[in-house]
């Protein structure tokens, strides 16, 4: 079966830790395809994936409204943080309002690196720009990488740009970056991950039983404990915080 997921759950190594025990126990071969949330949902809508794990609440809600998903359950969260060069040319350090921080970045003409790839992070960034009442910046100070989070962080680091990132990927990449967390803790920055079991009517050969059993496993107590501990030994704090809805079928 195919689990389509966002790059952040994969690049951090979380799924490499969670999936193999499931495969061993059940004999179900799980293929984890790491793409942006937008692409994962697009694959699932055509029945090219059986289960998705994404962090794009609005896009997921639209997906469910169109009847593409059988059930959607919250699994865990972490948060987005605004990172930037230690010199902080826009002076946003320790701001508690990410919208104001983005406005100062734009006003000061500082460089901002965007994923620009329809990922969950990119959708969040777009939402924040529009909620500032401003258009997202354009021109030479807005770098559209079209790449994953880790690659975009490296571009931001090399170009002394600000960028929006999920905390997990930033912590995992920090050792090769010249970037610091400048804005965090704004409730608008919450990053929630949901599991969606794909509707078998989306296409031929959707493995709905496999998807249900993997979803039940991932929302189980043992896995959630593992999620809460994941990364604590290496980064001093967990990369994801389990906050699961109970597995139930409608």
């Amino acid at each position: 079966m195919i689990l389509a997921t966002t790059t952040s759950t994969y690049d951090t190594g979380l799924l490499d830790a969670l999936i193999p025990p499931f495969s061993t126990r059940t004999g179900v071969n799980v293929k984890v395809i790491a793409v942006g949330s937008g692409q994962a949902l697009a694959m699932a809508a055509r029945g090219e994936a059986d289960l998705v794990l994404t962090h794009a609440p609005e896009a997921e809600a639209r997906f469910m409204e169109r009847g593409h998903g059988l059930l959607r359950r919250r699994m865990m969260y972490n948060d987005f943080v605004l990172v930037g060069p230690p010199t902080d040319p826009a002076g946003v350090r320790r701001s508690s309002d990410v919208r104001k921080a983005l406005a100062s970045i734009q006003r000061s003409g500082s460089t901002f690196a965007s994923r620009a790839d329809e990922s969950g992070t990119h959708m969040m960034e777009q939402k924040l720009w529009y909620s500032t009442g401003l258009e997202p910046p354009s021109g030479s100070s807005y770098l559209e990488t079209g790449q994953g989070m880790a690659a975009t962080l490296r571009v931001a680091s090399q170009k002394r740009a600000y960028t929006l990132t999920d905390r997990g990927t930033f912590l995992a990449q920090k050792h090769v970056l010249d970037l610091e967390i400048l804005v965090e803790g704004d409730p608008a920055l919450q990053n929630i991950y949901h599991l969606i079991v794909v509707n078998p009517e989306n296409g031929p050969r959707v493995n709905v039983d496999g998807a249900k059993s993997l979803a039940r496993y991932l929302l189980g107590e043992k896995v959630l404990r593992q999620v809460g501990e994941f990364g604590r030994d290496r980064y001093g704090q967990p990369l994801f915080i389990p906050d699961a809805e109970l597995y139930s079928e409608p």
């Binding site: 055509r46 029945g47 090219e48 296409g203 031929p204 050969r205 959707v206």
Partner: peptide, 10 residues
């Protein structure tokens, strides 16, 4: 692709 012409071959 599963929905493509050779999808049945998986």
């Amino acid at each position: 692709w599963r929905s493509g012409p050779f999808g049945a071959l998986e």
